[in-house]
Simulated scan of single mutants.
Amino acid sequence: MKNGPEDRSFNDIANKFQKNIYGSTKGRLRHELLLHHLAQHTSIAASRLQILDAGGGTGVMAESLLNMQHSLTLTDISQETLDIAADRLGRFDKLSILKSDILSLPQKQYDLVICHAVLEWVEKPKAVLEKLASLVKPHGFLSVSFFNRDAQLFGNMCYGNFDYVEQGMQVKNRVRLTPNNPLKPKDVLTEFAALPLSIKLTAGIRCFHDYLRDLDKQEKYYPQLKSLEIQYGDQEPYLWLGKYFQIIAQKV
């Protein structure tokens, strides 16, 4: 995996990030699919766990897991996003909040470590992945998701953004919510092979949603669309087309 220019903080646009990502069917579907796969492939539905949400931002996933009575540590490098999370999650007594980059996190181990939509924003994704694996207890679980560079290219070709693709999907004035360092799933899977982890799930997140020609169907037929995303999202060849890619692995 190639390193990006620098770790990205959302300190300057936390509220915009919250609205644009989670105020749409894109964000809702991503969140619900990630949570579905966690329920199917980890022990969150059967046990009370100690969970680390690394780079957890405004606490959307944390809220779902805290509602399931788990104990959770939420970290991020952006104080502004953590302030939003603290307001959202203030009612939970099993929550700890820590401002830190992932590589500087204390060397404590957890039953479940999640790091969703973070790797594509950091300077050293390989080092971050190694750090995350070290924070998982024996027989515990790691879930990562990241922006899929292969799907980014495919989508831009479908949308007719040919000049953008020819420029290597790089522009001088980058949109602030466009990831610094989108990753290829097979490159990340190669890094996983070097870690003491056994992969339990590989799945595309939003394999179909973003490619719909009629955008109204994203909302109008949301339940049917979500069902089909679940049915086909972990199957060849569709998993490689997900705008995000999720990997769940268990510590050996």
Rank of each mutant, 00 (worst) to 15 (best):
M1S: 14
K2H: 08
P5H: 04
I13D: 09
I13G: 08
I13A: 06
A14R: 00
N15P: 04
K19R: 13
N20H: 11
Y22E: 06
S24H: 13
T25M: 10
T25S: 15
G27L: 07
H31F: 13
L34K: 01
H37D: 08
L38V: 05
L38G: 00
A39M: 13
Q40K: 11
I44Q: 06
A46L: 12
L49R: 05
L52R: 04
G56Q: 01
G57C: 06
G57M: 05
G57R: 01
T58H: 05
L65D: 01
L65E: 01
L66D: 00
M68F: 06
T73A: 10
T75A: 13
I77S: 12
I77L: 12
L82S: 01
L89H: 02
R91Q: 14
R91V: 00
D93F: 06
K94P: 01
L95F: 07
I97T: 06
S100W: 00
D101I: 02
Q107N: 13
K108T: 15
Q109H: 05
L112M: 03
L112H: 02
I114Y: 00
H116C: 10
V118D: 07
W121Y: 02
W121G: 00
E123G: 04
K124C: 09
P125Q: 07
V128K: 05
L129A: 10
L129G: 02
K131A: 07
L132D: 01
L132I: 02
A133D: 01
S134C: 09
S134H: 01
L135S: 10
P138W: 00
F141L: 02
F141R: 02
L142R: 03
S143Q: 12
S143D: 05
V144P: 00
S145Y: 08
S145H: 03
F146Y: 04
F147M: 12
A151Q: 03
A151R: 06
L153N: 04
L153Q: 14
N156E: 08
Y159I: 11
E166R: 14
M169T: 03
V171Y: 00
R176P: 15
T178Y: 15
T178D: 14
T178K: 12
T178W: 14
P182F: 10
K184T: 14
P185I: 02
K186C: 11
T190G: 13
E191Q: 08
F192I: 08
A194I: 07
L197G: 03
S198E: 12
K200H: 04
T202L: 10
G204F: 01
I205P: 02
R206F: 07
F208A: 08
D210S: 12
Y211N: 08
Y211I: 09
R213D: 11
D214V: 03
D216L: 15
Y222N: 06
Q224H: 14
K226H: 12
K226E: 14
K226S: 06
S227W: 06
Q231H: 13
Q231D: 15
G233D: 05
G233C: 07
G242C: 04
K243L: 14
Q246D: 09
I248Y: 02
V252N: 13
V252Q: 14
